[in-house]
Design a protein around this nucleic acid. Structure first.
Lengths: 144, 144
DNA sequence: TCTATTTAAGATAAATTTGTCCGAAATAAG
DNA sequence: CTTATTTCGGACAAATTTATCTTAAATAGA
C-alpha cells in the first residue's frame, strides 16, 4: 500500500508531533529507535519532510527535529504521504494505462476510482493532531 | 497500488477471457501486443497464473492460453491478484508493524482497515466475466 | 576558540522488482 | 520422423527501492 519510506515517514512525523506537543525536540537516533526504522534511511526521509516544510530541523548539540505546535492540527496525512511519495498514488490508472478516464476507461476504472477516492478523502481528513493525540494517550502504538 | 506484474496479469487475463468466450486460444505474442506489456515478463506472469489454475496453457503450434468458459464467471479479481502478488496486500499493518490489531493498534489502524476492507470486497465482488464483457462490447479498453 | 554533537548531502551498496535471453520440452502438421 | 512453433524454466540484466557510509556544515557549550 504505502512504500517503506512512507511508513517510516508517517511514524516519525507522528512521534515528532507528540514530542513537540510537550515542547521537546527529538534527535534522529531517538526517532529511529522509537519508531523501529533504519537510522540512515530515516534521516533521508526526515530531510525530505524538512525541505517540504512539514517538520523543522536544527543542527548541532541539542539539535533535532520538531514541528511548530500551531501547525500540528493543520497537517494532514495526505501532506505527509504526498511529500514522500509524490502524487503517483493519487493519479494514474489502476492498470497502468497512460490514457484512462471516464470517456475511455480501463476495465477496472470505475471500481478503482471509488477505492482511491475513499483513500484520498481518508488521507485528507486525517490530521496529524489526532494521530499524535492517540499515541500520546496510549491508545495507539508505533513499535513492533 | 498494484504491482506491474499484477497490472499486466489482470489485463492479460481479461484479454484471454474475451477470446475464450469466442472459443479462441491466444498466443503470448498476441496477448502482449494487445495488452501493451513486455513479452517475456508477461510470459512469467502467465506461467504463474497457469500454475495457479486460473488459465490453461498449451504448448506447440496452435498452442497458447485460454480459460475454461465455465470458469470465467467464477473467477474474481481477488483470485487473480492473489495468484500474482500473494496476500501481502490483504494482510499486514498499514505502517508495517509486525503486531497490529484492534487490541494494540497503530495510529492509522482503524482508518486503514476501512480502506482495505473496501478494496478487498471490491476485488471479491468483481468477476472476470463482467470485466471481459465490458471489454468485449467496447465499453472499456486495455491499451495506452 | 575548540570540541563534541547533530543534521545535510552525496556516494555507494544491498535487496527487490521489473524485464530479457536462451535452451529445453511439448506438439501440430507435413 | 522431421520441422516449425509455442510455452516452460532457469539464468541473467536493468531499474527502482531500500539502506548504509562518509564527509561536510552548523551550533551549543566549555
Amino acid at each position: 500500500m504505502f512504500s517503506k519510506a512512507c511508513e517510516y515517514g508517517i511514524k516519525a512525523t507522528i512521534y515528532i508531533a507528540v514530542k513537540s506537543m510537550h515542547q521537546e525536540r527529538v534527535s534522529l537516533k531517538e526517532i529511529a529507535e522509537e519508531v523501529d526504522s533504519p537510522v540512515a534511511f530515516t534521516a533521508k526521509i526526515l530531510q525530505s519532510l524538512a525541505r517540504h516544510g512539514i517538520i523543522d530541523s536544527q543542527k548541532g548539540p541539542t539539535g533535532g527535529f520538531q514541528i511548530q505546535e500551531s501547525k500540528i492540527d493543520a497537517i494532514t496525512l495526505h501532506q505527509i504521504v504526498h511529500a514522500i511519495d509524490g502524487d503517483n498514488i493519487f493519479n494514474g490508472c489502476g492498470l497502468g494505462l497512460k490514457q484512462c478516464d471516464a470517456s475511455k476507461p480501463c476495465p477496472v476504472h470505475d471500481k478503482f476510482v471509488g477505492i482511491r477516492d475513499n483513500l484520498k478523502s481518508m488521507l485528507h481528513n486525517t490530521s496529524l493532531y489526532e494521530l499524535a493525540t492517540g499515541l500520546d494517550i496510549g491508545l495507539t502504538h508505533l513499535k513492533r
